[in-house]
């Protein structure tokens, strides 16, 4: 039982990172129906910005988080304007291939700039371990969890309470109708990329703290898993990304805790396939009939 709770705690901190990345996927998908494959790479860039600010400029956690989020937000908006905007009217497969191209580009540019080797992420906070009985929680886990919760609340506030959030929801419901109501759809899409990418940037720094190592290809696997989390929760639905992220994180740690860590990725992909076949709209999604 104690082991189970321990795994649950580990799963929660890993899951909160997945949830942060999944939010970016889900918001972008909700608005322009594009699987932004480059999202995992934005998160990788975020981790490297965090590395630079902490290691080179000796900044603390919060300033590095903010710098990383800001940089990733700019990067996300730039990618959207340069690569995705010309493809608004193109087929979804064309947009998807472009997204793969962008992701490939970011990886290789990063390898070109910083080299392919794995780097150790500097220790930014003192890693105290608190024990309750036999259950251990360390400072990193608490920090990750708290940061995620704060960012989620902020996001919820932006989406539900601000004018821009209202515009976002309008565009995701019906872009054409929103345009007729005088909403600048292009700006809303850019804003969505900014929000999603900044969350990915934060996730990058947090994952650097969690795994203590970063490399230019680190975005691929967590990016895919976060996408699976988004699909699991129901893509396009913001609370769904949260649910899916935590679920995938917990499932993954439980499998590595009780079974074999070698098969944990296979199980996650299997969950994806099962979800896609059984209920493609995800756990929180509603079925929609396709119109001809």
């Amino acid at each position: 039982m104690e082991n189970f709770i321990q795994q649950l705690i580990n799963g929660l901190s890993l899951g909160s990172i997945y949830a942060l990345i999944a939010l970016g996927y889900t918001m972008v998908y909700g608005i322009i129906k594009l699987i932004n494959f480059a999202h995992g790479e934005i998160y990788m860039v975020g981790a490297f910005i965090g590395y630079a600010t902490i290691h080179t400029f000796q900044l603390g956690l919060i300033p590095s988080l903010i710098i990383s989020m800001g940089f990733c937000a700019l990067l996300g908006a730039l990618i959207e304007r340069v690569a995705y905007k010309p493809l608004r009217k193109a087929t979804r497969v064309a947009a998807l291939i472009t997204a793969i191209g962008v992701s490939f580009l970011l990886q290789n540019v990063m390898i070109y700039i910083v080299g392919p080797q794995v780097r150790a992420f500097p220790q930014v906070i003192e890693n105290k371990v608190y024990s309750v009985g036999n259950i251990q929680i360390n400072q990193t886990q608490i920090t990750i969890f708290l940061t995620t919760i704060i960012l989620m609340v902020a996001l919820q506030f932006i989406v539900k309470q601000t004018k821009m959030g209202k515009a976002m929801r309008a565009v995701s419901t019906d872009a054409d109708a929103a345009r007729l109501m005088g909403i600048n759809v292009d700006n809303v899409i850019s804003f969505t990329f900014i929000l999603g990418s900044s969350l990915a940037g934060a996730a990058g720094v947090l994952v650097g703290m969690y795994y203590n190592s970063i490399d230019p290809l680190m975005g691929v696997a967590p990016g895919l898993k976060a996408f699976i989390a988004a699909v699991l929760g129901g893509i396009g639905i913001i609370p769904g990304a949260l649910v899916g992220g935590f679920a995938i994180g917990i499932i993954e740690t439980l499998i590595s805790g009780y079974g074999s860590s070698l098969i944990k990725d296979a199980v996650v992909y299997l969950i994806l396939i099962i979800i896609l076949i059984v209920k493609p709209t995800g756990l929180l999604g509603k079925n929609k009939k396709e119109k001809v």
Binding site: L34, R92, Y269, L272, L276, I277
Partner: peptide
């Protein structure tokens, strides 16, 4: 047979998952 009912990008992700499962199976 099951996954080809999916459309467009969903299918892409499903097939990606299948390829990864094959690779992990070979690994093990």
């Amino acid at each position: 047979i099951p996954t080809l009912r999916l459309k467009g990008d969903y299918l892409a992700i499903a097939t990606l998952g299948v390829a990864e499962i094959i690779r992990i199976a070979i690994l093990n």
